[in-house]
Amino acid sequence: MSENARRGAARTSALIPLAVAAALLTGCSTAGPDAPPVDFGSTAGAPAPATATAAPARFAAPERVLVPAVGLDARIRPVGVTADGAVAVPADPGRAGWYRFGPEPGSARGSAVLVGHVDGETGALGEFAALYDVRPGDRVEVRRTGAEPVVYRVVSRTTVSKDDLPSSVFRRTGAPVLTLVTCAPPFVPERGGYQANLVVTARPLEA
């Protein structure tokens, strides 16, 4: 059984009693229904400097992002900012947006940012909802126009208040990473919906 299928099954039924036990053991049952996915890895501290040996990569537009282990597969379009200065996340939850003012996936430096809705206004789950299930080491592939795909490995996942999204997510210098951002609980309709961002960081796969 493939990794994807195995985890898919886990999500629906097979491991529920076990998962309940795990939740109780880790004390997470007190967090309530709106608990975000658990954090892992570390994104703290200053980014390591980009390696001097990195060849100047030629720009190639990202067109599709895949995380096979969790079944994430979304087409990408470049996005900018809205009138109120937020990232213009594609309305279609099946789509991902690449923040075009920052580095592109495959760039030799900085954080290439992909954003996607966790769910849509009509109730459809977004492709990026699958980020709730990623684990350290999961492979992330970004296919590009006119260039080889770039491959990353997930190293961390953190949930932060939307108001406290670190500016380092959008850094344009330092070691290259891919940063995937979606929304996370708590969900408070009277306060505009989701109150947090889920931030998944992935590092380039060593060649």
Partner: peptide, 24 residues
């Protein structure tokens, strides 16, 4: 002179937190 975006609003109607609260 660049600055970072104000926020990432990447949620809809809450389906991702409530989708599994019924039925199964």
């Amino acid at each position: 002179m660049e600055t970072t975006p104000q926020a990432v609003h990447a949620g809809g109607n809450g389906a991702a937190v409530s989708a599994n609260s019924s039925g199964e």
